[in-house]
Amino acid sequence: MPPSPSDPTPLKPTASAEPHPTPPGHPTSHPRPQHRPQTLTALRLAGIAGILTSVAWLVGDILLLGKPMVSPHQFPILDAYDGMARDSLAAMLPASTTRLAWGALLGVLTGPLYLYACRHFRHALLPQPRRLALPPFLLLTAGYALAPFAHGSFFYWGQAAKAVHESGADAAALVTLPGDLATVLFIPYAVLLVLWGVGSVWMAVLVLRGGTALPRWMCIANPLVCTLIGTLVTKLWPGAVGTALQGAALSVANLLLFSLTTAVFWKKTG
């Protein structure tokens, strides 16, 4: 018999009266971030900035290092170098000053846009706690902040080597000048790669754990993995295209990286 309106006995709540709370640690306990229109616009603009800047740097790399390498018979100064330094100088020595200048300036003048594009790294890790998401963002952004200096320094390095070769001088101070410039140039490159390496591993681990704005398979969308892919592309591409891309591994990597993140964010938020 159903209770009368005056019956003080409360009715038992139905199953749909209150939803069951999501247990801590459950994959759905961290909802995907809700996107406001202004946030979506800024995020898409950041992706476009990253793609366009990567293209500009790719062209700059081709201008700086995309000529066929010359031999020490043509430029004896190459005998003083080996490895990456020798290959880089062998590509820059036959290039004109104008070509080298534009190759450097395309990277330096567009460099600030990379910092804007780094919004993708911060957004990718939402809604992870700040203590986990902020460090990789700062590490990766610091690496991009160093990149324009390293890229632009190739102009001065190549010009110094050309001047020493054309002067025919064998004074020790002049002959060692390009080597000194190369040492200073490679220091920020080494720091940049360390920052990217640590930040990339940190970011990849968070994405693989789940609960971020990116699907788990996007753990590959970081500078470290994309640089490895970019290096393979530039090493294995045959013919004239391979020669043009021989010094563009980082730019190919960034073009791949920001194309991936932009495509995923655009699709998810559209």
Rank of each mutant, 00 (worst) to 15 (best):
G47R: 08
G47C: 06
I48N: 00
I48D: 02
A49M: 13
A49S: 14
I51F: 11
I51M: 11
I51C: 04
L52R: 02
T53F: 11
T53E: 05
T53H: 08
T53P: 09
T53D: 00
T53S: 06
S54I: 01
S54R: 08
S54P: 13
V55I: 15
V55W: 11
V55T: 08
V55F: 14
W57P: 02
L58W: 11
L58T: 09
V59W: 11
V59I: 15
V59K: 03
G60D: 09
D61M: 10
D61Y: 09
D61I: 06
D61G: 14
I62N: 01
L63E: 09
L63G: 01
L63N: 05
L63I: 03
L63Y: 15
L64S: 04
L64I: 09
L65W: 15
L65I: 04
L65K: 06
G66T: 11
K67V: 00
P68S: 04
P68T: 04
V70S: 10
V70C: 07
S71R: 12
S71M: 01
S71G: 01
P72W: 00
P72K: 01
H73D: 15
Q74H: 13
Q74M: 08
F75E: 06
F75V: 04
P76Y: 13
L78N: 06
D79P: 00
D79V: 00
A80N: 10
A80E: 12
A80G: 07
A80V: 03
A80Q: 10
Y81T: 09
D82R: 09
G83C: 10
G83K: 08
M84C: 00
M84E: 15
M84K: 12
M84V: 14
A85K: 10
R86D: 08
D87T: 12
S88F: 12
S88V: 13
S88H: 12
L89I: 05
L89H: 06
A90H: 13
A90G: 02
A90C: 08
A90R: 00
A91T: 13
A91W: 11
A91I: 06
A91V: 05
M92F: 09
M92K: 07
L93K: 04
P94S: 06
A95I: 13
S96N: 10
R99D: 09
L100E: 02
L100M: 14
L100W: 12
W102I: 03
A104V: 03
A104H: 08
L105Y: 13
L105Q: 02
L105M: 10
L105S: 04
L106D: 07
G107T: 07
G107I: 05
V108N: 01
V108Y: 04
L109P: 03
L109N: 02
T110Y: 12
G111N: 03
G111Y: 05
P112M: 08
P112G: 06
L113T: 13
L115R: 07
